[in-house]
Design a protein around this nucleic acid. Structure first.
Length: 352
DNA sequence: GGATCCTTCTTCTTCTTC
């Protein structure tokens, strides 16, 4: 709590858009500067209610440590690491060489296509000239920043030190299994007959025990989901040459969105806690908007982070402005991937 | 029938004060 108070007092943080914390809780910092003996204005904060905010602030980068100093420390504890890392902050400022439009054509927003009927579900068929088209997941994985690679490898080393190689493998398998089961349960719910919109998600209890909590967690989000247009459906961008599978396309609070369902053990109350997820959503939306199989355009994205204990999921809305921002980031990642691949191919061709 | 693909996840943390 001390760190939280200190950060708030020096003005190093502002209330993020996605939190419901009243501005008044952030605006009386001068009181603490006047007298440290006075009763802190934060002592009256409902710590239960804002526990996720506290967790998030406590886990954000307030330390002076960098990947380099952390690595030196880790080397001492875990042994040498394969590669040294340098944060690539300059990349944040880069602009893609080709600013490919996110939306195909503004007019197509107005569509005569009825929103009723079963959602599209175009399955991936690699045989149809798609074998060389890279996927969104692969591109994102292969273009992680050095900083991301560093923290992921560090996390992995620590987990293996704690659980052992086998234990770590099992832990990962469990996470993937839960994620898959959760996706299947959401899919079942959203496609369970023409009257699904009349159902109450919180009353639906016939889920596998492993996903019961996750479904309870997203029940308040499902109440705002209508007119499902696609489920687990392949999208492909022919011009930019990539493909992926969208979790869901539906209206969320009236706006057509690409929706990505996620499970997480840790609370992710802010969009920044979701790492590359917004880039993934923007990539899917951009592909869908260029794909002739879908006769409409999506403007927004939604990342829903569900929790196993049933606590309310965090739903992060990506408005059009954010989607365009992450679309630009996606184009950069795509450029990076293409450059890597062509340099790899040319070195393979020259026999290096 | 086997192999491969697309997903499913995983990261940002440390110590001082009352």
């Amino acid at each position: 709590m001390f760190i939280l108070k200190r950060i708030l007092c020096v003005g190093g943080i502002v209330a993020p858009q996605s939190t419901s914390l009243p501005v008044s809780q952030f605006s009386s910092c001068h009181n603490c500067l006047r007298s440290s003996k006075r009763r802190s204005p934060y002592s009256s904060v409902d710590s239960e209610r804002y526990s996720s905010l506290v967790k998030s602030v406590m886990s954000s980068k307030v330390s002076s440590q960098t990947p380099e100093t952390l690595q030196a420390e880790d080397d001492h504890i875990y042994g040498p690491v394969v590669r040294a890392q340098t944060p690539a902050r300059a990349e944040m400022m880069r602009v893609p060489k080709t600013l490919h439009p996110f939306l195909n054509c503004v007019e197509t927003f107005v569509t005569d296509e009825p929103e009723s009927g079963p959602p599209a579900r175009i399955s991936l068929n690699r045989g149809q000239g798609r074998s060389s088209v890279p996927s969104v997941t692969r591109i994102l994985q292969q273009t992680l920043s050095p900083e991301q690679v560093f923290y992921l490898e560090r996390w992995k080393r620590r987990m293996i030190a704690e659980l052992g190689e086998e234990g770590f493998k099992e832990y990962n398998q469990k996470l993937f299994r839960q994620g898959k089961l959760f996706h299947s349960a959401v899919e079942d719910f959203l496609t369970s007959g023409p009257t699904w919109e009349d159902r109450n998600p919180s009353e639906t209890t016939e889920h596998a025990p492993e996903v019961q909590g996750y479904m309870q967690s997203i029940s308040h989000v499902l109440e705002d989901v209508r007119a499902v247009r696609a489920i687990e459906s392949t999208v492909q961008h022919d011009t930019l040459n990539y493909l992926g599978i969208v979790d869901c396309v539906a209206r969320y609070r009236g706006v057509l969105c690409v929706i990505d369902w996620k499970t997480s053990d840790k609370p992710k109350p802010f969009l920044s806690n979701t790492y590359d997820n917004p880039v993934q959503v923007a990539a899917y939306a951009g592909a869908l908007n260029s794909d002739d199989n879908y006769k409409y355009q999506v403007e927004n994205g939604l990342i829903v982070v569900a929790y196993k204990d049933g606590s309310p999921a965090h739903a992060h809305r990506l408005n059009q402005e954010l989607m365009l921002e992450y679309w630009r980031t996606w184009l950069l990642r795509l450029e990076k991937f293409t450059a890597q691949r062509s340099s790899h191919e040319s070195s393979a061709f020259s026999g290096k």
